[in-house]
Each structure stands twice: as structure tokens, then as C-alpha cells.
Design a protein around this nucleic acid. Structure first.
Length: 568
RNA sequence: GGGCCCGUAGCCUAGCGUGGAUAGGGCGCCGGACUUCUAAUCCGGCAAACAAUGGAGAGGAAAUCCGGAGAUCGCGGGUUCAAAUCCCGCCGGGUCCGCCA
């Protein structure tokens, strides 16, 4: 509805100007409901005073419909809305669409969204969590934008790391007790078991060339379709994945497909990629193996070539990634990957091979996010230093339980929903390109710009609505809104635009920031405007505003994968 | 060495693609707001002890709200009536340029 209003404003301006203007020439403003700086631009072209131009334009516009007043102020053209006309249709829309409020209509376009794709060599750690949360939220946001979204998790179950671990298990390499002790409470989880073995076997791999040789033979056998070798490695991956999946279940993150790399090898997909690329004019083969020279595309490695296969013929990740993306490209109309910024170069190589050599038509986009630094020291998987999400969740839930005990309001079983919500929001609220330093204190903060604040606003809405049992006659409400109500309503109207923007820019933080602002406006409204004790026509209007706020907060939290509790 | 990303109060963050009004927020800090309670402790009070009252304190759909202090928008230059935003140069941090994924 906000977009329609903007459209009307555009029509008015275009009528006065007698030429078309962009929708972006109409912006939000702290002074008016909508504003335009078009007069400055015209002033520049015509070398005239912008204030005079703005005055002239305003004189040629007649407010109508939802627009009540138009004023020229210091060169700006300010538009003020007629909330008394707006309130009923706006509230009706929210009321009728409910969980679909803000949702765009189906586009019949399918997006293949790959995210998380953690190597099955250990637990999910906090850095990787950013990937999962951005990915999961994007899948929700894009679905809300009318796309058909399929989420894929790529399981690299035949890589070198997995071979090291599989060989380690086979030879019974002993795990380091002191590391196990550090993660005592999780030691029976598959991902931790695999991680312990990884640390031990990797130490052996680096110090014992014979062991390294046996690992390389395992990789070779697996890649040449040796079922036993493939299964040895796939089993390690499976064991690890089971542990990882527990975490995603706790986080409420679902994947449509887990794509096993071993399957692509079994089907010979990697082999055919190597055969095809060998014939490309960018191919270069020497004693070190098969590579591509992508210099023409500005992708020059130090060795001059991007390696696809080792000299013994076994593929490296790039070749397998190409095979994987060729398969994925058959499934939809657009591919999106969520990747750390450390993968920017490889992603460009991959994309270049797909679009320039394979001439792939469907778009391949990427969301790169910056690193999560961890407060208090270096993390190193190889040395057994990790910050597992298991621990993060446990700490968050514990903290939530403590808060609940202190306040004696909510029931204890609210703790996971609040604790996990806090973590998710904390990571999602920052724009992906910005590096984050993870601090327990900030992540577990329940004050201010945090999920519990937003959840609390939602719970308050629910509480008010629970207490009012009367039927509301929407047509009979009083239509003279207080300023706090106007600001709240305007914010509610902008939700659709927010959904659209975050989907186009692939940035969940836009939704997160919006929700905080909305919740904050609701809190102010609630403070200033008594709801249940107001006289009927006003009370009903405010009840409807409360209900609309509740609905939009709920829909927004859903887009972030955060639950909206009805009581806290 | 080259490419990409980041730099906004003590700390964290929005805004930057499309230049416009006093650079929005949050944490922390200082001050204030409605209401309930008075078991322990402290202050005040008393010759002393006890009680009452007051304050501190504890709580709350208050996980809230309001006010205040706090910013050379990394630095320097340029374009412009107007720069956090665009251009050039620099500084600091991250990241990549692997027969690891």
C-alpha cells in the first residue's frame, strides 16, 4: 500500500513537471511522510533558485486521495498523508492477509540456494554460523518475495580432509585426551568424534610421509570409483553430518537437499568435466597436472593456472565445484550461493568457467559475508581450538533461563526460543560485508537492539489482545490518530517495501533493522496511548493497530527464522 | 607486490549503488517517570530498645518509556549551491592470489 501511495505522489509530481521522474526521487523524511528533492535537480539544470522551483511545483499540485497536504520547504517538497483516510484500508489489508502480509505474489521462478555446506570434518563453529543464518533467512525472504526456493547443502565427503580422517580411524590413531576433555559435554556427538580424530590424524599426516601416501592412495581409489574407498570416506562424513544436523534442528534451519559429492563422482560427473575442460582452449597440461589459464578474464594465479586435477588424475575442488554447479543449474532459473569472503577468488573462477567456457545461461549470484573474529584468542581447527555452536546455544539458553528466573514472569521453556533468537538476531543485524568480532557479552545481550526486545514487543501485543474480548467494528473506529499512532502505522505500511528491498539486495539485516524500529515505535505508542481503557471507538482503532503490529513483527521475525512468543 | 572488503562517540551499528534538512539507533554513563511491597540489611530517628513514618533497597507485561552528556563520519585533496555518500591519493584492519575446500 505504501508503494501505491508513492506512485500517487509520483503522478502528482509528474503532472506538475510535465515529465516523468523516477520513484527513487521520492524519499522518506524525518520531517514529512514523504519528500522529494527534485527541485534541486531542476534548479541545477535551469540554473535557478530551488526554493522558487519548489514553490512553483507545489502550486501546481492539488492534494488528493491519501495525500492531505503538500508543502514547499527550503527547496524540498514535502508530502503529508491523510491518516484518517488511510487507517481503515491499511488495517483491513493486514487483517485479511495475516501471515501473508508483505508477501509478494508468485513469480514462477525457482532459485537454487546453496548455503552452509560445511566440511564434514568437525562441529559447526561460530564463524560458519553466519553462513547458515544468512542462508536460511534469505531462503525465507526470497520465498516471501514470491520465488520458489530450494535449499541445498553440499557435503564434501571425498575431500582430502575426509580421507585423512577415514585413514586415521582405519589405522586406529589415538585421539588426544586433553582435547576431548575440553569438549567433554559433547564428546559423544558424531561431529565431535570426527573432529577429535581429525586433529590426531592431521598431526600424523603432517609428520609421517608414509601415512600421507596411504591417504593419497585412498583419495585415488575413491575417485576412480572404488566402492569400498568411497564408502569409508562417506561413512566418516555421515557420522559427522549427523552431529551437525542436530544443531541445525535446534536452530530451526531446514535443508531441502544434502548433495553428496561422492554421488557426483559415482555418476562420473567429475570425470566428464575434466574431459570437457581438457579440450578447452584455456587448458594447460604439464607434469603438475591439468589447469586452466584464465588470464584473459583477469583471474591470474601466481602459477598462472587454476588447477583442476593433480598429476595422478584426481580432481581438486574446482573441478568438482564445476560439476556440482552444472547439475544444480538444471534444477532452477537462478543459483545463489552464500560464501565467506575468503572464497571470492574461487567463486570468480567458478563463475568464469561456467559462463565463459560452458556458456551457462542462468544467473549465478553470490552473497559474500565477512569473517567472524572471535574474542579471546585464535581459533584453529587443526590444533583443536574451536568455538562450537553447541556451546554457544547452551550458554544462550542458560542465560535466558537466568533472566526468566530473575523476572519470574515467563515459563522456563521459553528459554531456548529467547536464547537462540538472541544469537540469530545478533549475527543477522549486521550487514554481511562487515566483519564481526564475536563477544559473548554482546551476543547474549537481551537489551536494546536485540531479539528479546522485539519478541517482548510481540508478546505485549498478544497480551493486550488476549485481555480484550470485544468484537471490533472496523468501520466504526475513530479516525483521528495521535502522532505515535501515525508513525506506527506508516512503519507497518512500509513492511512490503522492506521485504522487497532485502530480497533484491540479498541482505537480511534490512529486515532486522526494520523490526527493531517497528518494535521501538510500538513501545512508544503503547506508552503514550492507552488501549484497553480508551473509549470504544478509539480503543478499537488501537486494538487494530496492536494487532497489525503483532502481525508484522511476527511475519518479520519469521523471515529471520526467529520465533515470536505469545507470552514472555 | 596486486585484487576485493571494512573504517561513523569509550564500544557496537544504520545510512553510502540513486549526493540534500539538526549523521539515525543500541550498549555503557548521568538524570527522571507509573505502580506494588516492607522479610533481611543500611541511613535517618532514640538515652536505649521497640513500633510508626520517611529514605536507601527489592520487585513489576518495567525485558518499558522520557531527558542529558558523548562524533574531526580513518587522513588529505578534488567535484558540487550541497559530500558520510561521488573522484584521486594515502593510513589502519581483514581477506585472497595453494596439487586445502
Amino acid at each position: 500500500m505504501f508503494l501505491e501511495i508513492k506512485e500517487r505522489v509520483r503522478e502528482l509530481l509528474e503532472g506538475a513537471l510535465e515529465k516523468p521522474i523516477a520513484l527513487d526521487d521520492i524519499t522518506d523524511s524525518s520531517i514529512a511522510d514523504l519528500s522529494s528533492t527534485i527541485a534541486f535537480k531542476i534548479a541545477k539544470e535551469q540554473r535557478k533558485d530551488p526554493e522558487i522551483i519548489a514553490d512553483g511545483l507545489v502550486k501546481r499540485m492539488r492534494p488528493r486521495g491519501f495525500i492531505k497536504e503538500i508543502r514547499a520547504e527550503r527547496g524540498y517538497i514535502n508530502f503529508f498523508l491523510d491518516y484518517s483516510k488511510l487507517i481503515v484500508p491499511a488495517l483491513k489489508e493486514v487483517r485479511s492477509k495475516k501471515g501473508d502480509y508483505g508477501k509478494l505474489k508468485t513469480r514462477n521462478r525457482k532459485i537454487i540456494l546453496e548455503h552452509t555446506s560445511i566440511n564434514p570434518s568437525g562441529p559447526v563453529h561460530i564463524g560458519r554460523l553466519r553462513n547458515s543464518l544468512i542462508g536460511d533467512s534469505l531462503s525465507r525472504i526470497l520465498r516471501f518475495n514470491g520465488y520458489d526456493v530450494e535449499t541445498h547443502y553440499y557435503v564434501n565427503d571425498v575431500g582430502k580432509q575426509i580421507a585423512i580422517i577415514a585413514q586415521g580411524f582405519k589405522e586406529g590413531i589415538e585421539q588426544d585426551e586433553s582435547i576431548i576433555k575440553d569438549y567433554e559435554e559433547y564428546k559423544d556427538k558424531g561431529d565431535f568424534e570426527v573432529f577429535f580424530e581429525y586433529v590426531a590424524a592431521n598431526k600424523r599426516f603432517e609428520s609421517d610421509p608414509d601415512f600421507a601416501e596411504r591417504v593419497q592412495r585412498l583419495i585415488w581409489s575413491a575417485e576412480n570409483g572404488d566402492e569400498r574407498a568411497l564408502n569409508e570416506m562417506a561413512n566418516v562424513a555421515k557420522r559427522c553430518l549427523e552431529g551437525q544436523r542436530e544443531i541445525f534442528e535446534k536452530l530451526g534451519i531446514e535443508f531441502d537437499f544434502f548433495d553428496l559429492e561422492s554421488e557426483y563422482i559415482k555418476k562420473g560427473k567429475v570425470r566428464s568435466v575434466l574431459n570437457f575442460l581438457k579440450k578447452s582452449r584455456y587448458a594447460e597440461v604439464d607434469e603438475s597436472g591439468l589447469g586452466l589459464n584464465l588470464k584473459d578474464f583477469g583471474l591470474e594465479r601466481r602459477t598462472g593456472r587454476s588447477i583442476l586435477a593433480r598429476s595422478d588424475g584426481t580432481s581438486v575442488y574446482l573441478a568438482r565445484d564445476v560439476a556440482y554447479h552444472l547439475e544444480k543449474s538444471k534444477l532452477g532459473d537462478r543459483m545463489i550461493n552464500v560464501l565467506g569472503e575468503d572464497h571470492k577468488f574461487e567463486f570468480l573462477e567458478l563463475k568464469t568457467i561456467l559462463t565463459e567456457i560452458y556458456k551457462l545461461k542462468i544467473p549465478l549470484d553470490v552473497v559474500h559475508y565477512s569473517f567472524v573474529n572471535f574474542e579471546g584468542g585464535e581459533l584453529s581447527t587443526r590444533r583443536g581450538l574451536i568455538a562450537p555452536v553447541d556451546r554457544l546455544i547452551d550458554e544462550a539458553v542458560e542465560k535466558a533461563e537466568e533472566e526468566i528466573r530473575k523476572r519470574k514472569i515467563a515459563s522456563r521453556d521459553m528459554a531456548p526460543l529467547i536464547g537462540i533468537g538472541a544469537i540469530k538476531y545478533h549475527i543477522l543485524k549486521t550487514t554481511p560485508s562487515k566483519p564481526i568480532t564475536f563477544r559473548w557479552e554482546d551476543a547474549l545481550s537481551f537489551d536494546g537492539d536485540s531479539a528479546p526486545y522485539i519478541q517482548y514487543a510481540h508478546a505485549r501485543c498478544c497480551s493486550i489482545l488476549r485481555k480484550s474480548k470485544t468484537k471490533i467494528e472496523i468501520e466504526e473506529i475513530d479516525r483521528n490518530l495521535e502522532d505515535d499512532e501515525k508513525r506506527l502505522l506508516l512503519k507497518i505500511l512500509k513492511f512490503r517495501e522492506i521485504v522487497d528491498k532485502s530480497g533484491r539486495e540479498l541482505k537480511p539485516n534490512i529486515v532486522a533493522n526494520y523490526l527493531y524500529e517497528l518494535s521501538s515505535l510500538f513501545s512508544k505508542f503503547y506508552k503514550e496511548c492507552p488501549v484497553l481503557y480508551a473509549e470504544r471507538a478509539i480503543r478499537d482503532r488501537r486494538l487494530l493497530l496492536v494487532d497489525a503490529s503483532r502481525q508484522v513483527i511476527r511475519n518479520g521475525l519469521f523471515l529471520l527464522g526467529i520465533e515470536a512468543p505469545e507470552r514472555m
